[in-house]
C-alpha cells in the first residue's frame, strides 16, 4: 500500500474505490442541499462524511480517517440531529425561494466558482506525488504526534483554549437564568381562577375520532378551529393541520367523482 501512495497513478483498486465512493459522496452532498427535511439532510451529510473518512484512509491519513468517523459522524452530526429534534420541522424547510433572483444568482456563482476551481487545479498541472511512505514510516499517529507537540505545539495549545471557550460559550448561549422561582401548580391554578380566563383545563385537540391527533385543532361549535386546543410548541412551529374544511372538501370530491362518472356515461350514450 505504501508503494501505491508514492505513485503518480493509483492502483486500480483505489481508482475503483474513488469512482464508486466519490459518486456516493457527491450524491450525498447534493442530497444534503436539496433534501426538504433537515433530518434527511443530516443523514446524507453523515454518509458523505463517512465516504470522506474512507478517502482519508486511502490517502494515508489513518489517524484523521478514524477521527473523522468518531468526531464528525459520531459527535458533530449527532449534535446536529439533536438540534434538529429541538427545533423541529419548521416552515424554513420549504425549498421555495423567497428572495427574487437569489437561486439563479447562487447557481450562477456556484457554477462560476466551480469552473474556476477546476480550471485552477487543471492549470496547476500537478504531476509528481511524493507519497507518504517516508513520512508514515514510523507510524502515522506517531508522526502526527511528533509534529503536533513540537512544531505545532502553540497552535495545539490555542485550539485547546478555543475548545474550552466554545464550550463555555455554548453554555452561556443556551443557559437561561431563572430570575424567579418556578410557580407551583397550585399557584398556577389560583392565578387562573383570579384572572377568570380558562378556568377549566384547556380543551383537547382533535375533535373527531377520525382526526384524533395532537396537531389538529379542535373545532368550535360553529366549525372554526380553535388554536387553543393545540400544544404551544406545535403552534409556535406552525405545525397545525386545519381539518375544518375537510368534510366539505370530501363532499366536493365525492360530487365531482359522481359528476365525472355521469359525464363519462353521457358521451357514451351520445356516441351510441
Amino acid at each position: 500500500m505504501t508503494a501505491n501512495l508514492a505513485a503518480y497513478s493509483t492502483s486500480t483498486g483505489e481508482a475503483f474505490q474513488f469512482w464508486v465512493l466519490g459518486t456516493v459522496a457527491v450524491i450525498g452532498a447534493l442530497c444534503t442541499v436539496f433534501m426538504r427535511k433537515a433530518v434527511h439532510s443530516a443523514l446524507c451529510l453523515a454518509g458523505t462524511m463517512i465516504v470522506l473518512a474512507v478517502f482519508y484512509l486511502a490517502n494515508g491519513a489513518y489517524f484523521l480517517g478514524i477521527v473523522q468517523i468518531v468526531v464528525y459522524t459520531g459527535a458533530i452530526m449527532m449534535l446536529f440531529l439533536f438540534v434538529v429534534m429541538l427545533v423541529g420541522v419548521t416552515a424554513a424547510d420549504s425549498l421555495k425561494e423567497t428572495i427574487k433572483g437569489q437561486r439563479w444568482l447562487a447557481l450562477l456563482c456556484g457554477l462560476g466558482f466551480g469552473i474556476l476551481l477546476f480550471a485552477g487545479i487543471g492549470h496547476a498541472s500537478i504531476q509528481d506525488f511524493d507519497g507518504l511512505a517516508k513520512a508514515n514510516a514510523g507510524g502515522n499517529v506517531e508522526g502526527l504526534a511528533a509534529l503536533i507537540f513540537t512544531k505545532y505545539v502553540f497552535a495545539f495549545e490555542i485550539t485547546g483554549a478555543l475548545l474550552i471557550t466554545a464550550t463555555i460559550g455554548a453554555m452561556v448561549l443556551t443557559h437561561r437564568e431563572r430570575t424567579e422561582r418556578a410557580r407551583t401548580q397550585r399557584e398556577l391554578s389560583e392565578q387562573r381562577v383570579r384572572e377568570g380566563k380558562h378556568v377549566p383545563p384547556l380543551p383537547a385537540p382533535g375533535v373527531y375520532a377520525r382526526h384524533n391527533a395532537v396537531d389538529i385543532a379542535g373545532l368550535l361549535p360553529d366549525g372554526t378551529p380553535s388554536e387553543l386546543t393545540v400544544s404551544k410548541t406545535l403552534r409556535d412551529r406552525g405545525q397545525i393541520r386545519d381539518v375544518s374544511a375537510d368534510a366539505l372538501r370530501d363532499l366536493k370530491a365525492l360530487e365531482q367523482r359522481a359528476e365525472e362518472r355521469l359525464e363519462r356515461t353521457k358521451p357514451e350514450e351520445a356516441s351510441k
Binding site: 428572495i99 437569489q102 444568482l105 447562487a106 456563482c109 456556484g110 474556476l116 480550471a119
Partner: peptide, 28 residues
C-alpha cells in the same frame, strides 16, 4: 441592501469567485 444574510452571502461568494479569477489570470 435587502437585509437577507443570504443575499450578502451571494455577494461574498461572487466576490470570492472574482478574486480567484483574478488570481488565476495573474498567474496565467
Amino acid at each position: 441592501q435587502n437585509g437577507y444574510a443570504r443575499s450578502y452571502a451571494v455577494s461574498m461568494f461572487g466576490g470570492a469567485a472574482i478574486l480567484v479569477a483574478a488570481t488565476l489570470l495573474m498567474r496565467a
